[in-house]
Design a protein around this nucleic acid. Structure first.
Length: 570
RNA sequence: AACCCCGUGGUGUAACGGUAGCACAACAGAUUUUGGUUCUGUUUGUCAAGGUUCGAAUCCUUGCGGGGUUGCCA
């Protein structure tokens, strides 16, 4: 019993993805011999940066490929040249790799299939299952009917095949302006599913495409592209979010009516909704373009690049995605679940360092003026192999303003007049006196130290101390800027209907602290190092950082039961 | 309003006709040279009403509640 490996409670082993209804289905398809192994795909449109919601989909699709010995393709859904850019193609690939996944040779673009798709459009026309519609945009809209009323057939619906062929060719040749004509499937204008009411297959768009250039002036719609692209790639399980549920009949209609090389199946799952965040590419773009944040990778953004810059480990994001599972229920997840996943990994990995964010000076009156000692401080109590480091200690130190109270309550285990605390791994100090400026702000503490407590050890006389605080040698401190982040929105569902998400921006989402005092070892930290500022939180080096002007981001604060108790008013 | 989908503690998520479990959150305690970590314990749940069955969270019916769909976006 006791020799059972206890991975479950630690982040040591990558969490195993729990089974869900999609994996159940795959199990069944494998068992029945329908497929040898699953082939999935992640199909982003390159019109924005990836966010936490995409991470869920990436973990699902690539995760399945990894677990079942299948594969997952990366396919850019680039059928709308007016919104898509190379910048996004690049960032998306970088983000997926950072998340820890690999598509190998299987990088594709829907635009790779434009020729084939065009052929299939011709096929439908020849079969009498597609026609060129001359109705203007508004007419098509009006004739589609609505949720309760059936649509009306287009006057061009029964156009002869030869004429359709000729018209479609003229569309392709550029004989018409944008919007002048469309190619539509000929299905059923009275269908209860609006997607089946003669959906548009091709529209005219005289636009430059990031890959095909000016080769085309007609572009296939998503519905006419996606399933067929899946079929071309022999995707077995085409996984998408719930809003495409109503598109499945159309997806299947194309698969059934076209000579496609395979028969992929679409399955839908609920998209991710995280409290206090937004997962809408349009709104994320707006935040960037209107400068409510400092870019796609602003650490307050739940974009993949933002979370990376914030210091969230990709392993934590993967664990989080495994934790929330895959269902068809429109759930809203507590933000604390993500933070828990982040803390779990960081607690295991982060090197402990001492940093004072809001400093007040401590002068040890009985410590020799010029003496400097190097004390050994533990790098990571969760990982013995991380060892210790030398930290300089001398007569003048910085400590956190919060660690002193002029008139402390009984349960305050830190410094106050006459109170003794342990300075982490150094000595026990007793506060003898304090100095205030004209505004009544405490500027300086005068303390004495007990030489018998070196290393922070208990003194021989058996004295006890409740609190341990961190400190930085004033003479050796490195000055730095520290950026403290809070949630970007102060409403749990800023994305909600009838709500303008901009009204709920948290004005205090970024607090910049300058003149923070860091222990010297922190000068060596580089971007990507997970660090814990002891007793404060997890931090990382921001890319803005330079050796002359270090900049740190707060990834997430430590749990703070003292602060919690304070807030409850005890 | 029509069609499709979904309802399990505070929030999520398991249980595939047979003891409602887990995570997060909250609370209490133990340990602790981080008021961190770790450990222990506690509170709270099957949307409602009928039906099928020896037995229903699970199957059926109805109701209620939530989401999606009326782009030449994806």
């Amino acid at each position: 019993m006791s020799d059972t490996p206890s991975e479950s409670s630690s982040a040591n082993a990558e969490k195993e993805s729990r089974k869900d209804f999609i994996r159940d289905k795959i199990d069944a398809d494998l068992a029945s011999g329908l497929h040898e192994f699953p082939i999935t795909r992640f199909p982003p449109e390159p019109n924005g940066y990836l966010h936490i919601g995409h991470a869920k989909s990436i973990c699902l699709n690539f995760g399945i490929a990894n677990e079942y010995g299948g594969r997952c393709h990366l396919r850019f859904d680039d059928t709308n040249p007016s919104k898509e850019e190379q910048e996004y193609v690049d960032s998306i690939q970088e983000d997926i790799r950072w998340l820890g996944f690999d598509w190998g040779e299987h990088l594709y673009f829907a635009s790779d299939y434009f020729d084939q798709l065009y052929e299939w459009a011709l096929h439908l026309i020849r079969e009498g299952k597609a026609y060129v519609d001359d109705q203007p945009f508004d007419e098509i809209k009006r004739n589609r009917g609505n949720l309760t009323e059936p649509g009306t057939d287009s006057p061009w619906r029964d156009r002869p095949v030869e004429e359709n062929l000729a018209e479609f060719e003229k569309m392709r040749a550029g004989d018409y302006a944008d919007g002048e004509k469309v190619l539509r499937a000929r299905i059923d204008m009275a269908h209860a599913n609006l997607n089946m009411r003669d959906p548009v297959l091709y529209r005219i768009l005289h636009a430059h495409h990031h890959r095909t250039g000016d080769q085309w002036c007609i572009y296939p719609m998503y519905d006419f592209t996606h399933g067929q692209s899946d079929a071309i790639e022999h995707i077995t399980h085409s996984l998408c979010t719930l809003e495409f549920e109503n598109h499945r009949p159309l997806y299947d209609w194309f698969i059934e009516n076209l000579p496609v090389p395979s028969r992929p199946r679409q399955t839908e799952f609920a998209r991710l909704s995280l409290d206090y965040t937004i997962t809408s590419k349009r709104k994320l773009l707006q935040l960037v373009e209107e400068s409510h944040v400092h870019g796609w990778d602003d650490p307050r953004m739940t974009t993949v690049s933002g979370m990376r810059r914030r210091g969230y480990p990709s392993e934590a994001i993967r664990n989080f995605c495994a934790d929330i599972g895959i269902t068809k229920f429109n759930a809203r997840h507590d933000f604390s679940l993500l933070e828990n996943a982040v803390r779990e990994v960081l607690n295991r990995d982060a090197l402990r360092r001492m940093a004072v964010l809001d400093p007040i000076k401590v002068i040890i009156t009985n410590y020799p003026e010029d003496q400097v000692e190097e004390v050994d401080v533990i790098n990571n109590p969760e990982d013995e192999s991380a060892g210790t480091r030398k930290v300089p200690f001398c007569r003048e130190l910085w400590i956190e303003r919060d660690d002193f109270m002029e008139d402390p309550p009984k349960k305050f285990f830190r410094l106050g007049p006459g109170r003794e605390v342990r300075f982490r791994c150094a000595y026990w100090l007793t506060c003898q006196d304090f100095v205030k400026d004209d505004d009544g702000k405490v500027t300086e503490l005068h303390c004495t130290y007990d030489p018998e407590t070196r290393g922070g050890e208990n003194p021989p006389d058996g004295r006890k101390v409740k609190g341990t605080i961190h400190w930085v040698s004033a003479r050796h401190a490195v000055d730095a800027e520290v950026r403290l982040y809070d949630r970007l929105f102060n409403h749990p569902n800023p994305d909600g209907k009838k709500r303008n998400f901009l009204d709920h921006l948290n004005p205090y989402s970024l607090e910049i602290r300058t003149s923070c005092k860091l222990e010297p070892a922190l000068a060596e930290a580089v971007v990507g190092d997970p660090i814990q500022f002891e007793r404060i939180g997890y931090f990382c080096v921001d890319p803005d950082s330079t050796p002359e002007a270090p900049v740190f981001n707060r990834t997430v604060p430590l749990r703070d039961s003292w602060a919690r108790e304070q807030q409850r008013g005890n």
